[in-house]
């Protein structure tokens, strides 16, 4: 790996090629330098840990989004799932002991994702349609169970979670550690694990995979279920950060997750995309928001900048494919 990088750098025009190939990392580093130059509070540990805390929730659902997109699908339900599952977790944490609440929430997330997975894999519904339906159902259920208002943690278990979510270990916020562990698990899975390779195979050529005796439906079902479980994980984290579960959480997060995956160079047709690049996508989006906040740019222009960055990143990938 290192030798190929060296070769690339030493060949004529190599530096440019290298930058184009690893463009997400390049953009990320560029943004980091830019941020550091433009604002003196940026490189304070308070700001950086704040940034990491902000992106962790969306980051976790982005990993779920990545594996769904790798199969050629899409999961629009994750934002609403975060809301429903945050409410669910808040209810559970006030009812049962903490480990049970956590496990139950993740199981329920897995179950909700399974519904999308079942519709897509076995009922041959278009992923966009199936998860769109799940999106409104989940949001609606969130409002029904919470009766429209946030549910606060009232038990010691809730207090423990709140402490966990707002503290740091070795200077890194705990919830960011959870996010990074999930990224590393995804990286390992997509490279060294058979399940990960088969997901890529299915997204790249579903018919060929089927002809090779791969149980395509099973894997398509599973990626949505896993995406649901990751949405549950994200929900637990964001609920714990604020000490409550609200049906308004995760609004439009599915779009940010898709944006992160796309900035990370994944193809919406499936088969292409990596966890490390998705991590970069998440960090890039987070950085933009962070630096614009530091510069006191209001939120509407921020959205415009975000969109422009998405276009820029995807255009840059066009070079890579040539």
């Amino acid at each position: 790996m290192t030798s190929t990088i060296k070769q690339q750098l030493s060949s004529p025009g190599g530096i440019l090629k290298f930058l184009v190939k690893y463009n997400t990392i390049f953009i990320f580093v560029l943004l980091l330098i830019f941020s550091a130059l433009i604002s003196d509070v940026f490189f304070t540990s308070a700001n950086l840990s704040n940034l990491l805390k902000q992106v962790s929730g969306i980051g976790i659902i982005s990993i779920g989004m990545l594996i769904v997109i790798l199969t050629g699908g899409i999961d629009l339900s994750v934002g609403s799932m975060v809301a429903l599952l945050a409410v669910t977790f808040a209810i559970l944490v006030n009812m049962v002991i903490l480990p049970v609440a956590i496990i139950l929430t993740i199981i329920i997330g897995f179950g909700l994702g399974s519904v999308s997975g079942y519709l897509v894999a076995y009922q041959k519904m278009a992923p966009f349609v199936a998860t769109l339906a799940l999106m409104t159902i989940a949001r609606g259920l969130g409002f029904i169970y919470s009766k429209g208002s946030p549910i606060t943690f009232k038990t010691p278990g809730g207090e423990f979670m709140s402490n966990f979510a707002n503290n740091a270990t070795l200077g890194i916020p705990n919830i960011a550690i959870v996010f990074f562990i999930i990224v590393i698990m995804a990286m390992v899975m997509l490279r060294y694990n058979v399940f990960g390779r088969l997901i890529i195979a299915i997204g790249s050529n579903e018919e060929a995979s089927r002809l090779s005796g791969i149980k395509v439906n099973k894997y398509k079902f599973l990626v949505y279920a896993i995406s649901g479980a990751l949405a549950a994980t994200a929900a637990i984290i964001v609920a714990s950060r604020t000490n409550l579960g609200s049906p308004n959480m995760g609004m439009a997060w599915e779009l940010d997750a898709i944006a992160a995956v796309v900035i990370g160079g994944a193809s919406l047709n499936g088969g292409r995309g990596t966890a490390i690049n998705t991590l970069m996508g998440v960090l890039i989006l987070g950085l933009i928001g962070n630096i614009l906040n530091l510069l006191n740019v209001p939120s509407y222009p921020q959205q415009v900048v975000k969109g422009a960055i998405i276009i820029f990143a995807v255009l840059l990938q066009r070079f890579e494919n040539k």
Partner: peptide, 28 residues
């Protein structure tokens, strides 16, 4: 098959043993 039934985003080796991957162990 007449229609090429390869998976573009995997390596040559993975394609050749794709049918075994489906039934194989956990790690590659």
């Amino acid at each position: 098959y007449q229609e090429l039934s390869l998976v573009n985003d995997l390596s040559v080796a993975e394609n050749i043993y794709l049918h075994k991957l489906g039934a194989s162990k956990f790690w590659m």
